[in-house]
Write a protein that binds this DNA or RNA. Structure first.
Length: 271
DNA sequence: CATCGGACCTGTTAGC
DNA sequence: TGCTAACAGGTCCGAT
């Protein structure tokens, strides 16, 4: 479910409920998700006050009034919601941060590709070390893509999904941005002109920005923390539309697996 | 070093 | 209707 807009939607939804709250205790219903939880998680978090929630790539960073920060990733199926304390526990509700006041933060993740770890501000976390620029920042632009792509043989779609190139562009938005920019997803990254990369960077920013404004893409069960769905799905032009016709030129869309991911594009609009 | 395939998991859906 | 196989928003890791 979560690409960058979904993670940002989650961050914004949680912020007003968590800011200034104190974590009274932590309920762990298993040993870990993708990786084991840190052994001292409960001791470190008990009594901590939440000072901010930041996002880096698809990671959420919960800042506390102590050296450690909470690092969260939603993986493919993670959902973070605030719920009243007496809310019944459902399957795959793996972690609760029990807050003062009426709510607790509940981490639900059926596929368990998510993670929850502790980060010290003074010790850069390995998961964050190699991340590329934020797509909505000034550092990320067509010149950056052009510069990094020279000599890259990889098809452009998997290449822009590499988090070292730019963070936060997953399978859905990669397909949509390439359609919007008129670029064939199979084209070698190193053979795309500076002009076309400028267009691609612009479209990535526009599409991610629009998706955030609408509260993310609703696929299957994505819900923002207040339980409301996102509204971007109806605006997808190629993702999930295999077998249908292009909304722009009416040509039949093509689909193929590229780098093990479903890929849909318009053979007429994308070259 | 760049690139690819496999791995981690469960739930849903398509196909027989 | 029931069973099975394929596939799903991500990304790390080891082999090539």
């Amino acid at each position: 479910m979560p690409e960058l807009p979904e993670v940002e939607t989650t961050r914004r939804g949680l912020l007003p409920h968590l800011l200034g709250r104190r974590i009274e205790s932590v309920v762990l219903r298993r040993d870990g998700l993708r990786w084991p939880f840190p052994g001292d998680l409960q001791q470190v978090l008990a009594g901590a006050r939440i000072e901010d929630i930041e996002r880096r790539a698809k990671y959420l960073l919960v800042r506390l009034d102590r050296p450690e920060q909470i690092l969260l990733h939603l993986g493919m199926s993670g959902v973070l919601r605030t719920v009243p304390h007496d809310t019944p526990v459902r399957a795959h509700d793996h972690v609760d941060l029990v807050l003062d006041g009426a709510l607790r933060l509940r981490f639900h993740d059926p596929r368990r590709f998510g993670c929850l770890d502790l980060v010290r501000a003074d010790q850069p976390h390995p998961l964050l070390a190699e991340l590329g620029p934020e797509p909505l920042s000034e550092t990320f632009n067509g010149d950056w893509l052009f510069g990094w792509s020279r000599d890259r043989q990889s098809p452009v779609k998997p290449w822009i999904m590499d988090q070292r190139v730019v963070v936060g562009v997953g399978n859905i938005y990669a397909a949509e941005a390439l359609f919007a920019a008129g670029i064939d997803p199979r084209r070698a990254a190193g053979k795309i002109s500076r002009e076309r990369y400028r267009r691609l960077a612009t479209e990535i920013k526009r599409i991610l920005g629009a998706a955030i404004e609408r509260g993310g893409t609703t696929l299957r069960d994505f819900l923002s923390p207040d339980g409301s769905p996102g509204y971007f799905e109806q605006e997808l032009l190629v993702y999930g539309r295999e077998g249908l016709r292009c909304r722009s030129c009416n040509a039949e869309l093509r689909d193929e697996r590229l780098g093990q991911r479903a890929t849909v594009w318009c053979p007429r609009c994308q070259r």
